[in-house]
């Protein structure tokens, strides 16, 4: 086809243009603004570790963790979403809105550490999916223990251990006595 054919074809066809404000919608797997599902977030900080532009910053405190994110700094590379162990992070399927001042789009999430059922002090959050990956079969006893804070968990382990060992020692002693 020569150029005359090309322009006459263009002329005969309707223009390929989207009339503003109609627009070309992104593909379904588009990588937009990152969202954090605090229910799944375990505050591990991997997103902060892999974020090249410092868009995601994770700061841990005693009883909570601040997860902050500024789309104005984001490269939308999706590495944080890929590598998020708990699948807490996801990306919007559409583009971010324009904004007027630097930092306008910045958002923060607070991941509150759940209270330890035993002592009431903050415990590390946990994520069901990660548990399933780490352990195929979870006993009710283990499930209860995962909710405890580190100290209580250690104490619980200690008690179980002592009890177990104590029982064993008793049996041994009994055997000796026999």
């Amino acid at each position: 086809m020569n150029i005359l054919g090309l322009i006459s074809r263009n002329f005969r066809r309707d223009p390929a243009t989207y009339r503003y404000p109609e627009r070309h919608v992104p593909a379904t797997r588009f990588r937009g603004i990152v969202r954090n599902d605090t229910a799944k977030c375990i505050a591990c900080g991997i997103c902060d570790h892999v974020c090249v532009s410092g868009a995601i910053v994770v700061v841990g405190h005693d009883d909570h963790c601040d997860w902050s994110y500024d789309p104005g700094r984001c490269t939308f590379c999706g590495r944080c979403v890929d590598l998020c162990p708990g699948e807490a992070l996801s990306q919007d399927g559409d583009r971010a809105p324009t904004y007027a001042r630097s930092g306008d789009l910045a958002q923060g999430e607070q991941i509150t550490y759940p209270a330890c059922p035993e002592c009431g002090l903050p415990a590390r959050p946990y994520n069901e999916r990660l548990l399933m990956i780490a352990h195929d079969d979870i006993s009710p006893e283990f499930r209860e223990r995962i909710k405890l804070c580190e100290r209580c968990r250690r104490r619980r382990s200690q008690t179980v251990l002592t009890k177990g060992l104590g029982g064993a020692a008793d049996t041994e002693r009994n055997a000796d006595g026999a």
């Binding site: 593909a27 379904t28 797997r29 588009f30 990588r31 490269t75 939308f76 999706g78 590495r79 990306q91």
Partner: peptide, 10 residues
């Protein structure tokens, strides 16, 4: 459609 971005596919 494949990568989720038009440029810089990651």
């Amino acid at each position: 459609a494949v990568s989720g971005n038009r440029v810089n596919y990651a």
